[in-house]
């Protein structure tokens, strides 16, 4: 399972490294989103700094949708999905691999967006480890749920419109938890409740990674 996961993740990341879709389209989109948020809020930097955690996570959520679309469309060309199914690789490994590749891209994206938030909005990070841990946990949850829904909607013509509608409400707890933790880790936030939210993220991740490992195979069969 782990070997298959590494193979699939390596394949997706190699495609990504060569096509640079994430770097040239998804990451700039995230930056554009941050700039648009600033326009919506007005030039008040203190307001931006207060809104920074939430805006960061909303931008991450939107970029996740794009990254998942990309991860699915990579498989849809040239019958790659069928080839992957016929390859005899463990479906659980395939799920973990695809999710890991998405997660790796999201981490890079979050670094970019995080710097954007700090530079553009003037947000100050006080508790760095909380930021790092919460971002990693949130990324795992987003990648797992995204990969699941991506697989479910893989064969559909209406995928582009249906996927965000299905995925974003499910990911709402990640947005809430991530925002609250970032607020706790930044100036003017609510301290001390960060760990409770971290536990929520851990539960979310565990539940959806477990579901994905179990269910990814049957989903591939039916889609």
């Amino acid at each position: 399972m782990w070997r298959d996961a590494a193979l699939v993740a390596g394949k997706d990341l190699r495609i990504e490294a060569r096509s640079r879709v994430g770097l040239s389209q998804v990451a700039p989109f995230g930056i554009v989103a941050l700039v648009l948020f600033a326009f919506a809020l007005g030039p008040d930097r203190s307001l931006m700094a207060r809104g920074a955690p939430g805006l960061f996570w909303v931008a991450v959520l939107f970029c996740t949708v794009l990254a998942i679309q990309r991860s699915v469309s990579v498989e849809s060309a040239d019958g790659a999905r069928d080839a992957l199914r016929l390859s005899g690789m463990d479906p659980a490994g395939q799920f973990l691999g695809k999710a890991a590749a998405v997660a790796a891209q999201l981490v890079v994206l979050e670094v970019v967006l995080g710097m954007g938030v700090v530079l553009l909005y003037g947000a100050k990070i006080e508790v760095a480890w909380l930021i790092v841990v919460s971002s990693l946990l949130g990324t795992v949850g987003l990648a797992a749920t995204g990969t699941l829904y991506g697989a479910l909607s893989a064969g559909l013509r209406v995928r582009e419109t249906l996927l965000p509608f299905l995925l974003l409400p499910i990911a709402a707890p990640i947005l809430l938890a991530g925002t609250r933790i970032w607020q706790a880790a930044m100036v003017g936030g609510v301290p001390a409740d960060g760990t409770q939210w971290l536990r929520l993220l851990v539960v979310f991740d565990a539940v959806y990674v477990a579901i994905g490992v179990v269910v990814y195979g049957p989903i591939q069969e039916s889609a």
Partner: peptide, 10 residues
């Protein structure tokens, strides 16, 4: 349930 708790805490 996850949404329920997160919104409650929120």
């Amino acid at each position: 349930p996850i949404v329920h708790f997160s919104v409650l805490w929120w």
